[in-house]
């Protein structure tokens, strides 16, 4: 196990080095020098100022040969000196940390919701297996699973924010709070945030909910045929106890590993939805920095998303080994 972990960590480091090389290569190969005024950038406010250029030159070491410059950039990055955003005039690290909470707000809520709903729904589907209501539920879940979340986002926006505008069902179109948020009382603020969260969380949740639910049902179907379930039934245990204590507990292992696999998506997965809902998280920051050609921010976020994906994969593997004692990594 330890040697396996070490190996994975080493591979992770190599991968990170590869990704950083790639990102640094992108920085170096930006059209002309990225720091010169780019004729493609017609908007003067998006052009870096002279001071920015000097600062970026030193951070990225563009005046040095490639290997030295890469080394310096790496050193700066590992000491969390991610550079300064030149569209917002703030350190990138600060900019990103401001955006972590809104992203987590979306992803944690949706993670919690989908797990909490998927288990009872999956168990229900197992019990009612083959009947009309289970078939209906499974069919609906399959449809939802194939429904791209960005299309659902647009449909829901159209329905709740445009067509139902003015009725009591109206929901806000964009953002995570209203314009007059600051003037509201505490209860009103909470209500306002809640209303803004409904649509993005729904879009973020339904796909994984459908997936988890199918996953729970598939695993349960396998377990429910085992001999020990028949034994439990034969000794007179009630159906609910058999279902939860004897069957479901034995499907927990794959379920836990699923959690690990969803971790990378937790911070990065909302990129597209944040763009659609104008939700001020890291995904939106990424989009706005691409449009503003804010290279320090783009590169830091790319690096960050890569590290997150990497960590998620690693965690999934570790969780897998812990959850199932039969698995031995060698």
């Amino acid at each position: 196990m330890v040697s396996y972990l070490l190996r994975r960590l080493l591979i992770g480091l190599v991968t990170l080095a590869m990704i950083t090389c790639m990102i640094y290569g992108l920085i170096r190969s930006m059209p002309g020098s990225p720091l010169d005024a780019d004729p493609a950038m017609m908007d003067p406010s998006k052009m870096p100022s002279k001071a920015d250029i000097q600062r970026m030159r030193s951070v990225y070491g563009l005046d040095k040969p490639l290997h030295l410059a890469y080394w310096q950039w790496l050193k700066n990055t590992t000491s969390l000196n991610l550079g300064t955003s030149y569209s917002q005039k703030k350190p990138v690290a600060e900019l990103i940390s401001d955006r972590v909470w809104p992203t987590l707000q979306l992803s944690l809520t949706s993670l919690l919701l989908s797990y909490l709903l998927a288990v009872p729904m999956g168990l229900y589907a197992t019990v009612r297996s083959g009947r009309a209501d289970e078939r209906g539920l499974s069919f609906a879940l399959y449809m939802l699973y194939s429904f791209p979340s960005f299309v659902a986002a647009l449909f829901l926006q159209l329905l709740f924010a445009v067509k139902l505008e003015g009725t009591w069902l109206e929901l806000p179109l964009l953002g995570n709070h209203s314009n007059n948020y600051e003037e509201m009382g505490d209860a009103a603020q909470a209500w306002d945030s809640f209303k803004h969260m409904i649509l993005p969380v729904t879009c973020f949740t339904y796909g994984s909910l459908a997936y988890y639910c199918r996953f729970v049902k598939a695993n349960m179907e396998e377990v429910i045929r085992q001999d020990y379930i028949r034994t439990a039934r034969a000794k007179g245990l009630g159906p609910i106890r058999v279902l939860i204590h004897h069957a479901f507990r034995n499907t927990l292992i794959p379920f836990v590993t699923l959690l690990g696999l969803t971790l990378p998506g937790l911070l990065g997965g909302a990129i597209i939805l944040e763009g659609i809902f104008n939700w001020p998280g890291m995904g939106l920051l990424f989009f706005s920095s691409i449009l503003g050609r804010d290279y320090p921010t783009i590169m830091s976020l790319t690096l960050m998303f890569s590290i997150l994906t990497l960590t998620g994969q690693l965690l999934a593997d570790i969780l897998y080994a812990f959850a199932d004692p039969r698995i031995r990594y060698s």
Binding site: L26, P264, I290, T302, F305, S306, L310, Q313
Partner: peptide
């Protein structure tokens, strides 16, 4: 194992700023 960790969407988007 290495390529599995590369976030494709993020890379495509980052490329948009460069190319």
């Amino acid at each position: 194992e290495m390529v599995m960790c590369v976030p494709a969407l993020v890379l495509i988007l980052a490329l948009q700023a460069v190319i």
